[in-house]
Amino acid sequence: MGELSRAHLGMLLWALLVGLSFPVVGWLGALPPLLLTALRFVIACAGLIWLVRGEAAFLPRGGQWWLYGLLGACLAGFFGAMFWAAHHTTPLAMATLFVSVPLLAYLLGLPLGVERPGWRLPAILALGALGALGLALAEARGAPAGLAFGAGEAVFFLGCIASACYPVLSKWGLARGWLPASAAVRTFWSLACGALLVGVAGLALEPPSRLLGLGWRDALLIVYLGLGSSALTFWLLQRATAVLSPASVTAYGYLVPFVSMLLLLVQAPSRLGFAWLPGSLLVLLAMGLLFRQGRREARG
């Protein structure tokens, strides 16, 4: 199996893990979200230690620190914006705005030289965004309520820009030799910087005493989220970034609502209907075209 195929298969696993993590987050009690995210990142770093031990390029040197700081700020910016916006807008509005991330990654990557000008990839991304939006509307039963653009939507859109910047900056740093070849090392330090920034924000905005209500069940779920939904997913993303373009990597986010649909099929099949079909077909078509586009570029 070639490196390109492994990258695509890894991102398929990424979409599955991210899609499965949303129900797990819903099982957690009323815990402070920023401090909870920082704790997840710390656990993720602890889990990555066995991958990065012995790496010659483990300790950042010189300018690598500021680049890791920017990557950590991207993570902190996205999760901070997401948690704040969750109290000021609707899930449908957030899902609608999130489909812009691959197109944002493409536009941000063009001036940095990590995306190729052309029409095929933007067209594929637009097709996938349309399908993901269709799935989001189907999950909300087609209700248009909550699509107005206010403060909550503006803050979450800034978070989407931060999310798009993460693979763009990673690819840019790799292309210039400023980041190590090891995906585990890149993942470790970006999560470590993100944990520091999110943790500082959490200590300033949330009472740490709320973590005292953490039960053993919550602790197990947080460990799972730290290892499976943070360490593994960001490692898969960093590994794929070395092979695929930032827009192609983030395009796998279109599959997350598709995974949610499959979960709904298992849990409540009666809720599924024809409304889910158009979005599903468009997402699957876009991902197939994306894989074909990657193979074409690899041959070129």
Rank of each mutant, 00 (worst) to 15 (best):
G2A: 10
E3G: 12
A7P: 03
H8L: 14
L9K: 00
G10K: 00
W14K: 08
L20V: 08
F22A: 05
L28G: 10
P33E: 03
A44F: 06
G47H: 04
I49F: 14
I49T: 14
A57T: 13
P60E: 09
P60Y: 03
R61F: 09
W65F: 14
W65R: 07
C74H: 05
F79N: 11
H87Y: 08
H87D: 14
A93N: 15
P102M: 03
L104T: 02
L112S: 01
V114E: 07
E115K: 04
W119C: 08
P122Q: 10
G128A: 12
L133C: 12
L135V: 15
A136G: 14
A136P: 08
R141K: 15
F149T: 04
E153Y: 01
A154I: 04
F157M: 13
L158D: 03
C160P: 03
S163I: 01
S163Y: 10
S163A: 15
K171N: 06
W172L: 10
A175R: 11
T187W: 02
F188C: 07
W189D: 09
C193H: 05
L196F: 12
L197T: 05
A204E: 08
P207R: 15
P208C: 12
G215I: 03
G228F: 04
L232N: 04
L236I: 08
L236Y: 02
Q238T: 03
V243T: 11
L244C: 09
A251P: 02
V256A: 01
F274R: 10
P278I: 04
G279E: 09
L282Y: 10
L284K: 09
L285S: 13
L285V: 12
L289R: 11
